[in-house]
């Protein structure tokens, strides 16, 4: 049985019913953030660290997150070097008291594309330090294989650049990664815009999606969170049910046997 065939989402040996991971940023208000997270049904929420004198960093935000009762996944967003991500991951582990780290190492400022070379280097170091690394990566098969070789049990290729809402811009690549790494937990992270994007990711056999902007930036974030929840459920059910084989030519669904007027004209 492959990873994607399990009934629950497996993240480094912890199991979850929801296949939607949600971010805590960009909401119109802290209250809407809480309501949207609740509405999404997510069991995992992403957070980060910033200077304490920056806007809204600190105890008030942390208290709101704790009130959700969800598992926390800290990220290293904004880091541009291996040294930065290592330090930030270590700081996250102390503050959030978890070995989980969503490893983000940006290689290009224009589209916030992950740096694959630095990502491999940082992943190797952090795994040796006992972290459970969830690398945010591009949809490159060989990169994903190298991350898996290092010991990552979870991989998070992008659907599209962060915050673009473009969906799965290279479904072929994502599908190939799924086929080549059947035992790994695969999560599409970033770039989703509408619920059908999430549904497609799950239909491809991805184990989950991680999103933030698509919900926080919606006209009604609480309702959109619920819509994504349904989409993820539908996509997963469609994957488990196994889709019919695609065909190149039409095949009638209504029986032709007994058709009246058959070839009479």
């Amino acid at each position: 049985m492959s990873s994607s065939d399990h009934e629950q989402l497996n993240i480094y040996g912890e199991y979850f019913d929801s296949r939607l991971l949600i971010g805590s940023a960009l909401y119109p208000s802290p209250q809407i953030m809480q309501q949207a997270i609740h509405s999404s049904g997510a069991e995992i929420v992403t957070v980060s660290l910033r200077r304490q004198n920056s806007v809204s960093a600190g105890e008030d935000f942390w208290q709101l997150i704790k009130e959700t009762g969800l598992k926390v996944l800290p990220n290293t967003a904004g880091c541009h070097s291996v040294k930065e991500v290592i330090t930030l991951a270590q700081m996250c582990r102390e503050v959030f008291k978890t070995d989980w780290i969503k490893l983000e190492l940006i290689g290009d400022e224009y589209n916030l594309q992950p740096d694959p070379f630095g990502l491999l280097e940082a992943t190797e170091i952090l795994l040796k330090e006992g972290f459970k690394v969830l690398p945010y990566c591009t949809d490159d098969l060989v990169l994903c294989q190298r991350l898996a070789d290092l010991g990552c049990e979870v991989l998070m290729p992008w659907g599209a650049p962060i915050g673009t809402g473009k969906g799965l811009i290279n479904a072929y690549n994502l599908k190939t990664i799924r086929e080549r790494l059947p035992e790994h937990t695969l999560i599409v992270d970033a770039g989703l815009g509408v619920p059908s994007h999430a549904c497609t990711a799950l239909e491809l056999g991805y184990d989950a999606v991680l999103l933030n902007s698509a919900v926080a930036g919606a006209g009604d974030p609480v309702k959109m969170a619920k819509a994504f929840s349904h989409a993820v459920e539908a996509g997963r059910m469609g994957y488990v049910a196994k889709a019919m084989p695609e065909k190149e030519v039409a095949a009638p669904s209504t029986p032709t046997m007994g058709m009246p007027f058959w070839h009479q004209n």
Binding site: T46, V47, L49, R51, N212
Partner: peptide
Amino acid sequence: NGQFVPAGQLPDTKPNSGDSIEVLSPIQGG
């Protein structure tokens, strides 16, 4: 100076002139 200092080592760590201290707290993240 860009290196993590565990909480337990803070009382015994003395910075030098010109050093850079970063104190980070939870914030929203995606």
